[in-house]
């Protein structure tokens, strides 16, 4: 059940999109402020490093600005935004040669935590999973990132990737088995 507050927010969001679509720069900035975090995280998870993620985010929002007036505002904005993000990340990834894929986080800050030991563990985990994601084929990685890290449903992932739900399930299943093998191998090595 949708509460009155949610309805008010969605109306406000629709008005914001409408204004942004007609060239209102401040409205567009508001749209960007609300969605930049999820775009950046998705791009970083898909591309594996901050520099490429920043480039991808910038390109995504420029495309949003360029094509927002063509976006069908009777539909949800997030799937469209994720689709743009996945497409831009695929473009950037395909622009790199295979050996050049950079899954490095050298200049990224560690996960914030008061305990240094815990922070280190969290950072190690993050790098481990990021590397496991890097081992996946492009489509499986996109399915895992959208479903498990961005929290979309299988149907939403299918909508974003323009494939069937059965295909998404197939990607998810294969990716989970692959990541499990990768993680277990790394853990055994570290023990």
């Amino acid at each position: 059940m949708v509460s009155a507050k949610d309805q008010g927010e969605s109306r406000e969001w629709a008005i914001l999109l409408e204004r942004a679509a007609t060239g209102d720069v401040s409205a567009f900035e508001q749209v960007m402020l609300r969605s930049e975090r999820s775009v950046m995280l998705t791009a970083r998870r898909l591309l594996g490093n901050v520099a490429d993620a920043e480039e991808a985010s910038q390109e995504v929002f420029l495309r949003v600005y360029k094509y927002l007036h063509r976006f069908d505002r009777t539909k949800a904005f997030e799937p469209w935004l994720y689709r743009l993000t996945v497409n831009v990340c695929n473009d950037i990834a395909s622009g790199r040669s295979r050996g050049e894929v950079a899954w490095s986080d050298e200049h990224e800050p560690a996960a914030s935590s008061g305990d240094p030991h815990h922070s280190l563990t969290g950072d190690e985990h993050r790098k481990l999973i990021q590397n496991a994601l890097g081992e996946l084929p492009e489509k499986q990685r996109a399915a895992v990132v959208l479903r498990e890290l961005q929290g979309l449903t299988t149907a939403e992932v299918a909508d974003v990737l323009k494939v069937t739900e059965a295909t998404v399930r197939s990607h998810l299943s294969a990716a989970r088995l692959r990541m499990k093998r990768f993680i277990e191998k790394r853990f055994r090595r570290s023990l």
Binding site: E54, S112, G151
Partner: peptide, 18 residues
């Protein structure tokens, strides 16, 4: 292994990057 993957949900984004 899935609980390890889910830990990535908690990662933060650098504000200066945004």
């Amino acid at each position: 292994s899935q609980s390890e993957v889910r830990q990535l949900r908690n990662e933060t984004v650098d504000a200066s990057s945004l």
